[in-house]
């Protein structure tokens, strides 16, 4: 369920945002998000921007993991 795709906000007008997902653009409702600016990233689902997000999932993974298993992360070897 809930296919979501991250997209970059191109423009915002009257509660509607034009978003860009790797070159595919679509107008979505921005009514759930109070302050949205061009350049922000949002998670889009069924024509709705459901959350403002950061662009990078990997940096997030690193910080989440560091908080529960700092030893492994810091001593991990590179492959």
């Amino acid at each position: 369920m809930c296919v979501g795709i991250p997209a970059k906000v191109v423009s915002v007008k009257d509660g509607t945002a034009l978003v860009d997902a790797s070159g595919a653009r679509r107008e979505v409702s921005a009514e759930l998000l109070s302050s949205l600016d061009p350049g922000d990233y949002v998670m889009v689902h069924a024509g709705l921007a459901i959350a403002k997000i950061t662009a990078d999932d990997e940096a997030e993974a690193a910080s989440v993991l560091s908080s529960i298993a700092p030893a492994e992360v810091n001593n991990g070897t590179e492959d």
Binding site: E58, A59, A61, A69, E72, V73, G76, E78, D79
Partner: peptide, 15 residues
């Protein structure tokens, strides 16, 4: 940051 990320991923996978 990239290095940290790769380490984190490798660590997660290892765990």
């Amino acid at each position: 940051q990239k290095t940290d990320t790769r380490r984190a991923l490798a660590a997660a996978r290892e765990i």
